[in-house]
Write a protein that binds this DNA or RNA. Structure first.
Lengths: 190, 190
DNA sequence: TTCCGTTCCTAGGTGCCCTAGGCTACTACT
DNA sequence: AGTAGTAGCCTAGGGCACCTAGGAACGGAA
C-alpha cells in the first residue's frame, strides 16, 4: 500500500482549492480526506483540528493577497496606486472566493502577528503617501478604503448587485474615482 | 404535561436572540430546542429545516433594520440624512451582531422580493435626493455607500480596528464626512 | 536486519440534522 | 358531556461531521 503523501502544506492547499470550488464553509475534514483517498481520522496526524485547518487557509490567503497587491503596487503612486491596489484586491476575491472568505476568519493575536497582516496595512498606508495625509487622518482613510473594498467585494460575491443591470465593473471604477476625490479633498480635522 | 407553546414566530425570535448572544453560525436547532425544553425533532413541526430557520431570522433582521433606518431618516435631508442612515445601520449591527450576520444570508429571489429589501434600496435612494445625482450615477453611489457601510461594520465586528487605538467612532464619522464630499463632488460621467 | 517513528487504519463517542411513526393534550362538534 | 380530529410532542433511528484512542504497517536509519 503506497502512502498518500499527506503533509500540512498539501492539506492546506487542497483545502484552499476546495474552498474556491464549493465555498469555505463547506470545506470539511471528511471531504478533504476523501480527496486524498484516506480516512478522515488520518488527517489528524497532520493537523490539530478543523479550526487549525481553517486558520492555515486564512494565513495562506492573506499571504497570496499581499503578494498580488505588492506586485500591483510596484512603481505606482497616487490614484494609479489606489486603483491598482483596489483592482488586485477585487480580482483576488473574485478568482478565489473561498480563499477570500477564509481571509476573513478571526485569527488569534499571535497567528495574526505572524501573518501577512502587517504587509497589508503597510501597503495600504503606502497608497496614501500620494495624498499627503498625516495621522490620525491616515488611519481614518485606511479604514474607509479597507471598508469600501471589502464591502464591495462581499456584496458582489453575495450577488447584491445582480438585480440591477448596471455593470458592477463600472460602478467599481466610479466608486474608486469618488474615493480618489474624497482623499484629495479630505475633510479638515475639526 | 404542559405544552411548550412553540410557534414559528417565537422560534424565529429565539433564534435571533440566540444569534446575538452566541453568533449566528452557532445557532442550531438542537440548542433552540433545549431553550424551549423540548426535543430537537419536535421543532420540525414548526419549521421545515434549519435553512428555513436561518432565512426567517434574516427576513426578521432586514425588516427591523429597515424600520430603524426609516425612523432615523424621517425629516432629514442631505448630509443629515446620510449620517442618520449610516448611524442607524451601524448601531443596529453593533447591538444585534447575530441578526446583522443573518441579514447577509443569501435569500432566494421570492423570499427576497417578499422581504424588506425593497424598502432598503428605496431609502438608500432617498438619501441621494439631497445630492442631485441622476442615473446611472445614483446606482454607482448607492453601491459605494452600501459597500462602505457594510464593510466598515463587518471589519469592526471582526475586530479589525482594535489593534489601533484610534477610536472607531471617530474614524466612522470622518469617513462619513469624506463620503459626503465624494457625493457632492461626484465625478462627471466620462 | 532490526529498530523506531511516522502514517494510516479501525473502533467508538459526541453533536447536529432530519424522517417516520406513535402517543397525548387540546379543540370543536354533536 | 362525550367524542372525533388535529396539533404538538415524543422515541427511534439513520446520516454526516468532528475528534480521540490505540493498533498495524510502512520506510528510513542504525
Amino acid at each position: 500500500m503506497a502512502r498518500a503523501g499527506v503533509t500540512p502544506e498539501r492539506l492546506t492547499l487542497a483545502a484552499a482549492d476546495l474552498a474556491d470550488e464549493i465555498g469555505f464553509d463547506n470545506v470539511t475534514v471528511s471531504a478533504l480526506a476523501r480527496g486524498f483517498g484516506v480516512k478522515d481520522a488520518s488527517l489528524y496526524s497532520h493537523v490539530k483540528n478543523a479550526q487549525e485547518l481553517r486558520t492555515r487557509v486564512a494565513v495562506l490567503a492573506l499571504a497570496e493577497l499581499a503578494d498580488r497587491v505588492a506586485a500591483a503596487l510596484a512603481g505606482r503612486a497616487g490614484k494609479d496606486a489606489l486603483v491598482a491596489f483596489a483592482d488586485a484586491y477585487r480580482d483576488y476575491a473574485r478568482q478565489h472566493p473561498g480563499r477570500y472568505a477564509a481571509a476573513q476568519e478571526q485569527l488569534d493575536p499571535e497567528t495574526l502577528a505572524a501573518s501577512a497582516a502587517r504587509r497589508h496595512s503597510e501597503m495600504t498606508r503606502a497608497i496614501l503617501r500620494g495624498y499627503r495625509l498625516s495621522e490620525p487622518d491616515q488611519t481614518d482613510a485606511i479604514r474607509l478604503l479597507h471598508s469600501t473594498f471589502h464591502g464591495y467585494v462581499s456584496l458582489e460575491a453575495a450577488g447584491g448587485f445582480r438585480h440591477n443591470p448596471r455593470d458592477a465593473d463600472i460602478s467599481w471604477s466610479r466608486s474608486l474615482d469618488a474615493l480618489d476625490i474624497a482623499l484629495r479633498n479630505w475633510p479638515a480635522t475639526p
